[in-house]
Amino acid sequence: MKTLLEKLIVNYPYFFAMVLFSIGVMTVLTRSNLFKKLLGINIMGSAGYILFIAAGNIRGGTDPILHQSDPGTVYVNPLPSALMLTGIVVSVSVTAFALSLIIRLYKEYGTTDARRIARMRNEVTKSDSSDRG
């Protein structure tokens, strides 16, 4: 029976994936700077990549090209890497779109702090309603 520590050392990529994921979630939820939120999203994404790619790795395996002379070779599973290529594309488009939104917000409010933006917006809506009333 292996101890918990041994299990952690053997499965260290999964452990680091979860640590990265927690860092990402904390950044997204606790930081009010929009750029930091975006960085947090990207850190979370990296956690997913590590999880998948570690799952595909086989220690001592070679690149997944079929050698006809030696059919008994152990290959690294290429599927998770291919999947994560898609994941990276998705992450890039999310980042690009989020950056364009941040630029739009910065042009309007002159800040990239979510709390200050919310405060300024509330003031605008309040003055709107007081004008009407």
Partner: peptide
Amino acid sequence: TPRAAEAAFTYLVLATLASSLVVI
């Protein structure tokens, strides 16, 4: 509008958080 951009950013952040959860 800036209001829409703000709503879209909040949505994007939370939806991407959700996507990361789903992919993991």
